[in-house]
Structure formats: structure tokens, C-alpha cells
Amino acid sequence: MTTAEEPMALAATRLRTAGMRVTAQRMAMLMAVCESPGHLDADTLRERAQRVTGRLSLQATYNVLRALTDAGLVRCTQIPGHPSRYETEHHDNHHHFVCRRCGAIRDVECTVGAAPCMEPQLPKEYETQEAAVTFWGLCPDCRDSAVAS
């Protein structure tokens, strides 16, 4: 197996383990998400996946991302004012920091206690499974440039 084939083989294995049918589009998109630093939008991931698959429609991109998200392989983060962002799902229930100036997104470890990191005041009939917290502020680069101005 060549070095270029290894990520494809790994993607195929991850898809099979999740009970998914293995397709070139799914392997390419899963590779694009897993090999990307940070939190990328669908269009950026589409561009990266097309390096493997050739042409990939935007609708197919969203369909594949939805399937990967539903299978628990990819996490979709929706932050107000930003397009949906995707990252590898690690089932760690982390949160996010968003820079108000440049839009950079950074992972933040669970804030308090064990997942879901919060205990909402709800009637006992409710079962909380996840909490999504977004912290807003300035990243170091934007903070430094604001101070220098």
C-alpha cells in the first residue's frame, strides 16, 4: 500500500466500522475533514475532496457531510453568523471560542465537570445528552492589533 492509499484505506475502514457503504465521495470527504486543521465550511471541504474525486456537486457535498454527521464520524458546528463548520467527531463534547474580528474558531475543553459539562435545571423527565457553548471574544492576533491601533 502506498502512502497516498493509506488515508483512503483508513477512511474506508472508518466508514465500514460505522456501518456505512463505502463510496469514493464519502472516503474523499472523510479524508478532507480528518486531514484538515480546524473547522472548515462545506465549500472548502468540497474543494479538498474534489482533489480525490474530481467534480463533486454542492448538493452531494452536503448529502455526504450529513451522512457522515449522522453516522457520528463528523461533527457539524453551527455558530450564528457563520456557515456550518465541520470537524472530526471525537465524542469529547468540547466547546468553541470564536474571534469576533477574524472569525477564527478554536476548540475549548469541557468547561465544568463531565460531559455534557453543564447541569440544566429541567424536570427529571428530560435527558440532556449534549451541551454546546460558544465563547466570543478576540484571538491573540486580533487583540494585539487592536491594542497597536
Score class of each variant (00 low, 15 high):
43 D>W: 08
51 R>S: 07
95 H>E: 08
48 R>K: 15
134 T>R: 09
16 R>V: 11
83 P>R: 07
25 Q>D: 12
51 R>L: 12
4 A>T: 11
66 R>D: 11
98 V>Y: 01
131 A>D: 08
34 C>R: 15
80 P>T: 12
31 M>V: 11
20 M>W: 03
11 A>W: 03
52 V>F: 12
114 A>L: 12
44 T>L: 11
104 A>M: 05
49 A>H: 01
46 R>Q: 14
58 L>C: 07
13 T>G: 13
76 C>H: 04
47 E>G: 11
81 G>D: 04
47 E>Y: 08
107 D>T: 15
128 T>G: 03
104 A>V: 12
91 H>P: 04
145 S>C: 05
22 V>N: 07
140 P>C: 04
106 R>I: 10
24 A>F: 07
119 E>A: 13
119 E>I: 14
128 T>S: 10
88 T>E: 12
81 G>L: 07
50 Q>M: 15
1 M>S: 13
114 A>Y: 09
125 E>C: 07
41 D>Y: 03
77 T>W: 09
44 T>C: 06
139 C>S: 01
21 R>N: 07
21 R>D: 08
130 E>W: 13
86 Y>I: 01
137 G>R: 02
87 E>H: 07
106 R>W: 08
45 L>M: 01
143 R>Q: 14
12 A>H: 00
123 P>S: 10
142 C>H: 05
76 C>I: 05
54 G>W: 06
78 Q>N: 12
88 T>L: 12
69 T>W: 04
137 G>M: 03
72 G>D: 00
5 E>G: 07
22 V>A: 06
72 G>Q: 03
145 S>R: 13
122 L>F: 11
48 R>L: 14
134 T>E: 08
22 V>H: 05
84 S>Q: 08
13 T>R: 15
10 L>W: 10
97 F>D: 04
80 P>F: 09
111 T>I: 13
55 R>P: 08
147 V>I: 14
48 R>N: 08
61 T>N: 02
103 G>W: 04
135 F>K: 10
35 E>Y: 03
33 V>L: 05
101 R>P: 00
145 S>M: 10
89 E>I: 02
88 T>P: 07
60 A>L: 09
37 P>L: 10
18 A>C: 03
11 A>D: 04
9 A>R: 14
26 R>H: 07
90 H>L: 14
30 L>K: 03
49 A>D: 02
93 N>H: 15
143 R>W: 13
97 F>H: 10
131 A>L: 09
133 V>H: 10
133 V>W: 10
74 V>G: 00
41 D>H: 02
32 A>W: 02
106 R>A: 11
105 I>R: 00
49 A>W: 00
8 M>A: 15
118 M>R: 15
131 A>T: 15
128 T>C: 13
132 A>M: 12
105 I>Q: 01
95 H>D: 10
121 Q>D: 15
1 M>E: 07
72 G>S: 02
147 V>K: 13
56 L>A: 01
127 E>V: 14
137 G>Y: 04
25 Q>W: 04
